[in-house]
Write a protein that binds this DNA or RNA. Sequence first.
DNA 1: CGAGCTCAAACAGTATACATTATAGACTTG
DNA 2: CAAGTCTATAATGTATACTGTTTGAGCTCG
Lengths: 238, 238
Amino acid sequence: MTETIELKRVGDGNLRAQVYQQVRLTIQHGELAPGQKLVDVDIAARLGISRMPVRDALMQLVHEGYLVGTTRGFTLPTLTATDVADIFEVRRLLEPRAAAHAARTLDAAGLKTLAAALREAEAAAADGDADRFFQANSAFRNCWLGAVANERLSQTIARFVDHVLVVRLRTLSHQPTQAVIVAGMRAIYEAFVKRDAVAAYDRMTHFIQNAEERFMKLSPPFQNSDGEGKSMSRRGKS
Amino acid sequence: MTETIELKRVGDGNLRAQVYQQVRLTIQHGELAPGQKLVDVDIAARLGISRMPVRDALMQLVHEGYLVGTTRGFTLPTLTATDVADIFEVRRLLEPRAAAHAARTLDAAGLKTLAAALREAEAAAADGDADRFFQANSAFRNCWLGAVANERLSQTIARFVDHVLVVRLRTLSHQPTQAVIVAGMRAIYEAFVKRDAVAAYDRMTHFIQNAEERFMKLSPPFQNSDGEGKSMSRRGKS
DNA sequence: CGAGCTCAAACAGTATACATTATAGACTTG
DNA sequence: CAAGTCTATAATGTATACTGTTTGAGCTCG
């Protein structure tokens, strides 16, 4: 409960949105211990605002699956192997189609951004810089996902990606995995360049399958799916 | 703003969950005019509670897409043709797979419930009772959706179904459409009985395509997708 | 008579205070 | 010594009050 979380106010709009952004970025950057408690009054004091906007933001994050809210504070969810498998199943269903969309709608500027992200990922992989690699990876996906015409589709995907993202830093630190991912990104990028929707679909399918295999293989702590500790018990749902 | 909304307290847990349930049920039953404003302090007064739980519930509903929150109250979203098409695209991607899951996991009790819902739908279609038909339809889907092992998948589907549901009453009132839907339900049900995952997948695909065609055909007011009034502009997002 | 401006009302955002609940730790008893 | 219970504390849930902003209506001026 020391100064591990560093939140600063950003001029965006209402306080809730600001807090939401800050906390989500904190989570996405992995700057949060797996069992760390997020207490609204605590964050509120640190930001110099009242509990309510913080509480609203945290509840929104809970609802989106970024956090779990117990009666005793908000913490990161600890996904079981089943959870991860479920998320990947949904991603397998959605992302290939979305990639096919993007292959048709990406413009020159988008392709340029993708190329830059790809180069960055390659450089980071060469250096073994997991954090940079992670950032490049996110930039790559955010770019093509932003070109998808169907916003509900892209938003749903983004959410599920973020859910596994919490524990993804581990996978992305693994050198051979980085190589595989870069290869997959390049394949997808080339399909985008050729505006080949079918190729984009197929390569995205392959990419996700690879990612899931790698993830499962590299995560021995997830093997103990004792079935009892389904940690995603949400609060506030029906 | 008269007594059109009838909310009663249900002993569930915290107030926010209760209000959330009540309002969502109200929406799902179509007991809400398209442009009607939902004001937190109003509902709070009617329920005899304070604004905060109501506000939380409404914001949750906004976030889930059931409502849109303007700077001037919460109202129902008015979906454009593009919105509906987007939702159906996601449903096409998810529901066949989910049906295949259900074909394997549905137990005898579930099949019995499905059979009852199917009979109910047939009876309602024969009587031309749109409301009963609607209820039977929902019961049918909720049943097989509940048997899907992947909870994230089923929850995502349920959400998107609910989104089009707001304007679905129109479609379900149409007699020929009711016949088509009943036929589709029966086909899917039989696939479930045979535990034929492939057939369930294919028939669900066909079912959704039919539903979308019918929906688009029966909705002349949605044809004017002037592109300007994208009504799903949410508040509170980034 | 019409257009623009001002004022008021309504509603969401925010803050603070109070109630409730669950958990952890300590103490007591078997 | 161990197990169960009780209490204290910490964190969420709820309520009320206040503030700021937006919208709509009415009035005034051109």
